[in-house]
Design a protein around this nucleic acid. Structure first.
Length: 721
DNA sequence: GCATCGGATTTTTTT
DNA sequence: AATCCGATGC
């Protein structure tokens, strides 16, 4: 129990509290994860609770993994059997196990946002609704909101004409999903919650098993998640939730702060514990954060305090435009690293919208500085990855028509839209799915051939034969082998790798996916597909790469960095223009800014461009209204020139242009972050190094000299440890 | 059935 | 600026 001594009084109270409902209100940096993990350890180690009786849910796999490893650190293999995972993954598993009670089969596939959009479009065309008048995106939003409120199509009560349309589309949408044996993200929560509410024996089973339920980021739960939790905790009422309403930034996807009120109402006699002591940031940063968040109405003021001291004032910097904003960030990072004030991995650059990452990436590439970018889209959104996954999904579940439509003619095999329409019609006539019709054609069931012209029939049968083959192998081969067979059968490699640089990149992405598939030798195709469907953006954050991180403010939640840049602080970006109409939205923007600020441990840089390019044009922009709320005495006197007219396009340090690194065989001797000694310039910091033509090219930042590019064979560098 | 061109459209945030 | 969609021609 020696670990308990490292907790403060409130934390210890939370960790060691007895049975019953507990609501922990935890400010940023107050050791929330620590409390959760130690609570689990305490239950296992001191209260004699068996791990399989504990359920802990988070929002991202990364948070789940981190909690798991910390629990293992504390109690070792006594943690074995613990249920710890994201809401979505936990639900996905329950649904596979309990599929017999539900209107789909256990080998269902999970539809991502793109798939969902395809389904909406299908529904619109089935119903003859004009998608110009009813944009699929917005209909999908309405459907998703309904699902988050646990409303099935026939329970959806229209309040206006648009709702009538939504209801019709939603009805058709859900029919299509079920016909495809597919579930969307919202369904995972919806069906699990409904299952627990509607089938008493299932509820009993889980409510009796899970003696303790723990929830991270409670402020981000939606109604479906809340109802799910109350069902799970219905037997023992040992529910331990941790959250911070000031960090609620997901209302737009159904998160409902009223869940805190519901909790207070439904779990009477609950204990409330406040964690206010901050262990992360300097007081200067906390003062800025409080100044910003205090402007939100209807909240109780939290007094964030730290024992870390005041620290450095924050930096507010204006640049001419967004391009120079990116350059400023890169230069600032380089100079802090070069002057030994920080390590390369100590930085995060945060922005409101994903599109803002592009200029930043360009600036980093230009300066030859490595970086990492958080965002699942980056990988899983790629065409080649989606193609391969669609093939696997189809092999796993031939009813998945969305995947079928995606790849039936990729690579081109002469099955165009005409054939597809004919296939669909024929399948419908025979009361089977198009996938099954193909499999039948491929298995030489000639009776179906009569629906097609001879050439069409033979191309379809050929493809059906392939599909039938994969389907058979799907259970025998590990995911990687099946993937290779598909790539081989379809000639996918020569299709994608056309000899261009882009083609090579695309093939490398496929190789990356192969590597991931290889990790699922034992777990199987099921688990692999679930994993690729439920990756979150944060999950793409690799742990130990020691380079700056680029990420959205949303993705930054739960993380911390010594030095944080928040860029694009102009009105319309942060707060985003789409939130201008409703005060609720504006308040959420403010919380988003607050989340960003409170990620910083030591230094905070707020950067704003005076001009911004959008759709190809550069326009002057106003500064973010949030900046006006920060007291001057917390801001370092820098960057904010006497007059805005002093800030011009000129005088920007441009880093040497160079070619992309070649593919050398050996490893660079000098690693980014290492200190080297040069006979003339003295001590410098390695920013980047790569092998080029049998030599090593090293970029070194010398405090007095600036950035120098050196050839290792000539420069006589000495590596200091 | 497929490639190409031109015009429209895009940008909120994500499990 | 970049991508997507639909119409057109081959």
């Amino acid at each position: 129990m020696e670990y308990l001594s490292r907790l403060n009084g409130q934390q210890r109270q939370a960790v060691t509290t007895g049975l019953g409902p507990v609501l922990v209100l935890a400010g940023p940096g107050s050791g929330k994860t620590r409390v959760l993990t130690q609570r689990i350890a305490y239950l296992i180690g001191e209260m004699g609770v068996r791990p399989f009786q504990i359920l802990a849910v988070t929002f991202t796999n990364k948070a789940a993994r981190e909690m798991e490893s910390r629990v293992v650190e504390l109690v070792g293999d006594r943690a074995y059997g613990l249920t710890l995972g994201t809401f979505h993954a936990t639900c996905a598993r329950i649904l596979r196990r309990e599929a017999e009670h539900l209107p789909f089969q256990s080998n269902y596939v999970i539809f991502d946002t793109d798939d969902q959009l395809s389904v909406v479009k299908r529904a619109l065309s089935d119903l003859n609704i004009d998608k110009k008048r009813y944009p699929p995106q917005s209909l999908l939003g309405s459907i998703s909101r309904a699902k988050n409120e646990l409303l099935l199509p026939d329970e959806f009560a229209p309040e206006n004409y648009r709702d009538e349309i939504v209801k019709r589309v939603y009805t058709r949408y859900q029919e299509i999903l079920l016909a495809n044996n597919g579930l969307d993200f919202d369904d995972l929560l919806l069906w699990t919650a409904r299952l627990l509410e509607d089938v008493p024996e299932v509820r009993e089973k889980y409510a009796r098993r899970y003696v303790h339920v723990l929830v991270d980021e409670f402020q981000d739960t939606n109604l479906a998640q809340y109802r799910l939790l109350t069902q799970l905790a219905s037997n023992y009422r040992n529910i331990f939730v941790v959250g911070d309403s000031d960090q609620s930034i997901y209302a737009w996807r159904g998160a409902d702060y009223r869940n805190v009120l519901r909790f207070e109402r439904d779990f009477t006699g609950y204990q409330e514990i406040l964690l206010e002591q901050n262990y992360r940031s300097t007081q200067a940063i906390l003062d800025v954060a409080m100044a910003v968040i205090d402007r939100n109405p209807n909240r109780t003021h939290k007094n964030l305090s730290t024992s870390r001291g005041f620290g450095e004032k924050i930096v507010l910097h204006e640049t001419y435009d967004d391009r120079e904003e990116a350059n400023y960030v890169v230069e600032k990072i380089a100079s802090l690293v070069a002057t030994n004030q920080a390590n390369t991995g100590d930085f995060a650059v945060m922005y409101r919208t994903n599109a803002q990452s592009r200029l930043l990436e360009e600036a980093f590439l230009h300066a030859n500085l490595p970086y990492k970018l958080v965002g699942a889209q980056r990988f899983y959104g790629r065409r080649e990855i989606k193609d391969i996954i669609a093939y696997l999904r189809l092999a796993h579940n031939v009813n998945d028509e969305i995947s079928l439509t995606r790849i039936i003619n990729v690579p081109a095999r002469g099955i165009g839209s005409k054939s597809l329409i004919t296939l669909r019609a024929a399948a419908q006539k025979n009361q089977i799915s198009p996938g099954n019709m193909l499999v039948a054609l491929g298995s030489k069931q000639e009776q179906y051939l009569e629906h097609f012209q001879s050439r069409m029939g033979s191309v379809l049968s050929d493809f059906g034969e392939l599909l039938a083959g994969w389907r058979k192998l799907q259970n025998e081969l590990p995911p990687l082998a099946l993937m290779d067979k598909i790539i081989d059968d379809t000639g996918y490699r020569s299709y994608i790798d056309d000899g261009t640089d882009e083609g090579r990149d695309r093939w490398e992405n496929v190789m990356e996916l192969r590597r991931l598939a290889d990790e699922f030798k034992e777990a199987g195709l099921d688990a692999f597909l679930e994993r690729v469907a439920l990756v979150s953006d944060q999950d793409t954050l690799e742990g130990n790469v020691n380079v700056p991180t680029l990420l959205t403010l949303h993705a930054a939640k739960g993380l911390e960095f010594p030095n944080v840049f928040i860029v694009g602080l102009s009105d319309g970006v942060l707060p985003h223009i789409r939130s201008f109409d409703e005060p609720e939205g504006m308040q959420e923007e403010r919380r988003l800014f607050y989340v960003g600020i409170t990620r910083a441990k030591d230094r905070l840089f707020l950067v704003l461009p005076l001009n911004r390019s959008s759709f190809g044009y550069s326009e002057p922009v106003d500064e973010s209204r949030f900046l006006r709320d920060i007291p001057q005495e917390l801001i370092k006197d820098s960057g904010r020139a006497r007059s805005r007219s002093h800030i011009t396009r000129s005088g920007v340090l441009r880093w040497e242009k160079d070619k992309v690194p070649t593919t050398g065989k050996s490893e660079p001797l000098y690693q980014a972050g290492a200190t080297v000694l040069h006979p003339v310039w003295g001590e410098g910091m390695v920013l980047n190094s790569r092998i080029q033509d049998d030599d090593e090219i090293v970029d070194v930042f010398f405090a007095g000299e600036g950035l120098k590019r050196l050839a290792a064979s000539l420069a006589k560098l000495e590596l200091k440890s």
